[in-house]
Nucleic acid binder design. Structure first.
Length: 594
RNA sequence: GGGGUCGUAGCUCAAUUGGUUAGAGCACCGGACUGUCGAUCCGGAGGUUGCGGGUUCGACCCCCGUCGACCUCGCCA
């Protein structure tokens, strides 16, 4: 007989009755009747019930067992009596009558119970992650993650992509997020950087003629955490393709994403390809951001012209100063109590905005200060333009275009949630396309890249030469699912001359581009194919599929919000010897080892 | 760095809003029990109410400071 097991804990069925078997696992739950006791024995695969009777040699040990100890059980498979069958257990028709039990590893008092699905403080969970990972939900999430990654890989390979590994120790990049730096021992004073993304490498792979590359790529960025953004590191399904247009990229990845979501979504619906394409400009107007949650049916309207020169002086005056008015419909909310509207206004103020005006319609009659001051004619125009019903409400966000859009977007989400309008059990995908190539930085008072400097501007060189930079669009796109940005991608700029010109418009001269992007720009001088790609975030895909609002629920060993690994004790101090080898010395101004 | 929420037993939460010995469930220890699957029943142990100061006859509760966790803004080409 095998040293530890003949079967795993989800394997035995009625047809095994009578067999002598050996199982190993953790004591999940024990029910002790004095002269008879039950143990739910758990392993990765499932649970089997062990019965130990008074006359069994294993009884004294079984009585003393504590939860989460690891044991090996020898016994005989028994059919359960009809009234003792547990339909919630795969193995519920049988049980194993123990003849011998060996304690393989004893568990101390648990800081965190494995049984049950109560919630526990993040800190305790992270400190005892190995216990937390035994728990049903987290264990299942991690298995889901593995299955999703396996499926992504299989689907990419089926689409003709080839997986390559790109370097982890690489060069710091001048733009983008903060780098994680690794000091060089051989070159004191110099540093490697961990890749924020394998961006340049994947483009070089295209130049090298590999045509279709992908990688489940670890990416490192030294930025602060959020619920959907773990600090430090994350994984992307990074891919790149040669000789493609934007539509070719969409056509290649849509079936992969659709396939994976369809495979793991259970009862939930998934947008069928082709996913809707929404221009950045339209998304900002209709949804108030560039990552719309299309489960929310509310669409924002621009009603600036209706308020221009109207009787509601606050807005009319703001419009003269360059503000716009965006209207957010609240279907059926007109008959709600005044507190609904005032509460929403207060919420907007708490968020740091000037406020959120409203009209509440009751039987077609508009109520509130704005309706009164604006007059029935203009109110009727709003109703007509927005197609409002007789008992709808409508909120108004007034401000400079970006500010107004932002508040309108937040209000759209809030109203959608408050009125319970968000469609459930569905994954709604869309592409956001036609991002602007540049934007104006109010603080620095200069033109900057709004997204990715390596994107090809629409209209290429001619656009760069002739257009106002702020009007130039890029072949730059995001894929969004349920309001979560899964990835951004682009058709890349593969022509050195256009690259120099694009950087010039953002204030970088030729020598700086040569210096910072030497590897890539040099390669483009020796025959580069037109190419493009994207990089959907793996962690976020799993979050969506696992229906988890927090990214730590789908990561094996996540760090806390302060970027610490409480279990391993990272980051940690290093020895004086290590520092000496690296030529690193702390000064009084800098951080000191404590 | 700013804002918000929170911090009471190993864990999840109470404590009639400033009142006398800070309670309950889970976990732990002991006892009873032969069909449970959140077993049940009886008993026990377990607390500097995050920490420091203040107000008060009296503070888990109010005030000030501080530490920590999470959420969020900044940041994330």
């Amino acid at each position: 007989m095998h040293a530890y097991r003949t079967h795993h804990c989800a394997q035995l069925r009625k047809d095994s009755v009578g067999q002598n078997v050996r199982l190993s696992g953790w004591v999940y739950r024990k029910r002790d009747f004095g002269n008879l006791l039950f143990i739910d024995l758990r392993d990765h695969y499932g649970i089997s019930q062990i019965v130990v009777e008074k006359d069994s040699a294993a009884f004294p040990l079984a009585e003393s067992l504590r939860s989460e100890s690891v044991i090996r059980v020898d016994g005989k498979v028994n059919a359960r009596a009809d009234d003792a069958i547990n339909p919630n257990l795969i193995t519920g028709e049988i049980e194993v009558r123990a003849t011998a039990i060996e304690l393989l590893s004893e568990a101390a008092d648990l800081p965190l119970p494995v049984f049950g699905n109560a919630e526990y403080p993040e800190e305790i969970r992270l400190r005892n992650r190995f216990l937390d990972l035994r728990r049903e939900k987290l264990h299942a999430n991690i298995v889901l993650r593995s299955n999703v990654i396996a499926s992504l890989r299989r689907r990419m390979i089926d689409q003709g992509f080839t997986e390559f590994q790109t370097p982890i120790l690489t060069a710091s990049s001048p733009e983008g997020a903060r780098d994680f730096l690794v000091p060089s021992r051989i070159h004191p004073g110099k540093f490697y950087a961990l890749p924020q993304a394998p961006q340049m490498f994947k483009q070089l792979l295209m130049v090298a003629g590999f045509d279709r590359y992908f990688q489940i790529a670890p990416c490192f960025r030294d930025e602060d955490a959020r619920a959907d953004r773990s600090p430090g590191e994350f994984y992307q399904l990074d891919f790149e393709m040669s000789f493609v247009t934007q539509e070719d990229v969409f056509a290649a990845i849509e079936p992969v994403l659709y396939g994976v979501f369809e495979e793991f979504s259970g009862e939930r619906d998934v947008t069928t390809p082709p996913f809707p394409r929404i221009a950045y400009k339209d998304s900002m107007l209709k949804y108030g951001n560039d990552k719309p949650d299309l489960r929310n049916p509310i669409e924002i309207s621009d009603v600036t012209e209706i308020f221009r020169g109207g009787g509601f002086a606050v807005f009319a005056k703001a419009i003269e100063d360059g503000s716009v008015v965006r209207a957010i419909p609240a279907p059926g909310a007109g008959v709600r109590a005044r507190s609904f509207f005032d509460g929403t206004n207060q919420w907007a103020k708490d968020e740091g905005f000037a406020g959120l005006g409203y009209i509440n319609f009751k039987g077609g009659e508009g109520g509130g200060g704005i309706a009164k001051n604006l007059g029935p004619e203009r109110v009727a125009q709003i109703v007509k333009q927005m197609g409002l019903g007789p008992d709808d409400g409508v909120f108004f966000s007034c401000g400079k275009p970006l500010e107004a859009a932002k508040l309108a977007g937040l209000a759209r989400t809030r109203v959608g949630v408050e009125l319970d309008l968000i469609e459930k059990n569905t994954f709604k995908f869309c592409w956001i396309v036609d991002f602007p190539m540049y934007e104006f930085d109010e603080v620095e008072q200069k033109v900057i890249f709004s997204h990715n400097p390596f994107s090809m501007p629409q209209g290429e060189m001619e656009a760069l030469m002739t257009m106002n930079p702020l009007d130039i669009l890029a072949y730059q796109y995001d894929i969004v699912c349920n309001g979560i940005e899964l990835s951004s991608g682009a058709i890349r700029n593969h022509k050195p001359e256009i690259m120099y010109k694009a950087f010039e418009l953002a204030g970088y001269d030729r020598s700086l581009v040569d210096e910072k992007f030497r590897g890539m720009i040099n390669a483009f001088k020796f025959g580069a194919p037109p190419h493009g790609g994207s990089a959907p975030g793996v962690d976020r895909i799993v979050m969506l599929l696992a229906d988890e609002p927090n990214i730590r629920e789908v990561i094996l060993f996540p760090m806390n919000q302060k970027a610490e690994d409480l279990m391993m004790g990272a980051p940690s101090e290093v020895s004086a010897k290590q520092l000496r080898e690296l030529g690193i010395k702390f000064t009084n101004d800098g951080p000191k080892p404590q």
